[in-house]
Simulated scan of single mutants.
Amino acid sequence: MAVRGTRGAQRTRTDAERARLYAARRQWNEKQGSRRRRDTVIAVIAGGLIVIGAVVSQTLHAQVTAPAPSPTPSAPVETTTSSPVPTTPASTPLPTQTPGE
């Protein structure tokens, strides 16, 4: 059987492979973190624009639409300074007996 190399050379190759994988994972995680930050900034800006747009829309709608008309009296109220006319209570009909009572 042929010998591929010494244990030291094999360990060096294994260590180099681990270091390469570690560097690739670090780079991927850093890229993912920056992508998440970018997405968060975009989401915050978009949400803020939506809220600002809603406030502006409501303000413009309130300014453009006419307010409800105020009620006006249909007939002028006459004020008299004469003595009040005494009113008699309306005559109420007396209860009548119904047959069978």
Rank of each mutant, 00 (worst) to 15 (best):
S74Q: 14
V64K: 10
G100P: 01
G8E: 01
A43H: 07
P69Y: 03
G33K: 14
W28E: 12
V55C: 06
G100N: 02
M1G: 12
R20V: 09
A2E: 14
T40G: 10
Y22P: 00
G33S: 13
P71Q: 06
R7H: 06
A16D: 08
T79Y: 08
T72C: 11
V3I: 15
S70Y: 10
Q58R: 04
R36D: 09
T81R: 02
P89A: 11
E101S: 13
A23V: 00
T79L: 07
T72F: 14
R18I: 00
D15C: 04
P95G: 05
P93A: 08
I50L: 10
T81C: 02
I52L: 07
G8L: 01
P89T: 00
R7Q: 08
Q97E: 10
A90N: 07
L60F: 06
A19G: 03
R37F: 11
R11H: 03
Q97D: 09
T98A: 11
S70C: 13
R26Q: 12
R35T: 04
S57E: 04
I50N: 00
R26G: 03
R20N: 08
S74W: 13
R25T: 00
R20E: 09
H61L: 15
T98N: 11
S34P: 01
P76S: 08
Q58M: 09
P71G: 05
H61D: 13
I50S: 00
V85K: 01
T92L: 08
A46M: 08
T6I: 02
T72P: 03
K31R: 14
A75G: 08
L94G: 10
P71T: 02
A46S: 13
A54F: 05
V77Q: 08
P89L: 05
R37N: 11
T14F: 13
V85A: 02
P95E: 09
V77Y: 08
K31L: 09
Q63P: 04
Q97R: 14
E78P: 08
T65E: 14
T80F: 00
D39F: 04
Q32E: 11
P73V: 05
S83L: 05
V55G: 06
P95D: 09
A19W: 03
H61M: 14
P69N: 05
